[in-house]
């Protein structure tokens, strides 16, 4: 019984991140975990991202590799791409966004339900890349709020997985008051 209790304790401490006294759990023989609701919900959210891969360009090749069998997104819970914004919560903007494509990106972002996160995959999404010209948006953060920036042209799959882990850490620290955030703050020029 002592071993079981310590294992439960370890699990609970992992989830909440701080040590607490064992009172009620010991009384209930380790069949109950107590934590804050925020922490539990964040834990569920971060290990079950439903991606919307907004793939446009060359980074899409690395996205296929990341989703492939060698560098596996499924290990991190983010396996299932949902090709509808209504059903997904992680918008991965993969590749260059041109001015013609920009309204579509904003529309897709607005159609997603909160909570939602945006992952800028590749340096063209982060800042326009080396396409500093008349037709490329210089970074999608001029259009929608971005949570994680992964530069690279294209980024190696390990970098993408690192970005995903950082996003998971970010989600872990969220509070209820962060949501809802509202529509993307853009204007039609």
């Amino acid at each position: 019984m002592g071993l079981k209790l310590s294992r439960w304790k370890a699990t609970r401490d992992l989830m909440v991140g701080q040590k607490q006294s064992a009172g009620p759990e010991r009384l209930l023989d380790g069949s109950v975990i107590l934590t804050r609701l925020e922490a539990a919900v964040n834990w569920a959210r971060k290990y079950s991202f439903f991606l919307y891969p907004f793939v446009t360009a060359c980074c899409g090749m690395e996205f296929m590799s990341v989703a492939g069998p060698r560098y596996d997104l499924d290990r991190f819970g983010a396996a299932l791409p949902r090709f509808s914004p209504r059903q997904s919560d992680l918008l991965m903007v993969v590749g260059t966004i041109s001015h013609k494509q920009a309204p579509i990106l904003v529309k897709v972002y607005n159609q997603m339900a909160e909570p939602k996160w945006v992952f800028a995959f590749g340096v063209c999404a982060v800042s326009g890349g080396f396409y500093d010209n008349y037709s490329v948006v210089q970074g999608i953060d001029t259009l929608i709020p971005v949570d994680i920036y992964v530069p690279g042209c294209p980024p190696r799959p390990e970098m993408v997985l690192d970005g995903l882990l950082l996003l998971q850490q970010k989600v872990k620290q969220e509070r209820w008051s962060d949501w809802p955030r509202g529509e993307a703050p853009v204007s039609r020029c």
Partner: peptide
């Protein structure tokens, strides 16, 4: 290749490279 309302013809030599014509932009 460009959206319908784009003004100008970009590959002409007198069109500047970095002229921006965004359809949608920050507030």
């Amino acid at each position: 290749l460009l959206y319908e309302g784009f003004e100008g013809h970009p590959l002409r030599k007198d069109y500047p490279l970095k002229k921006r014509q965004p359809l949608i932009g920050p507030v």
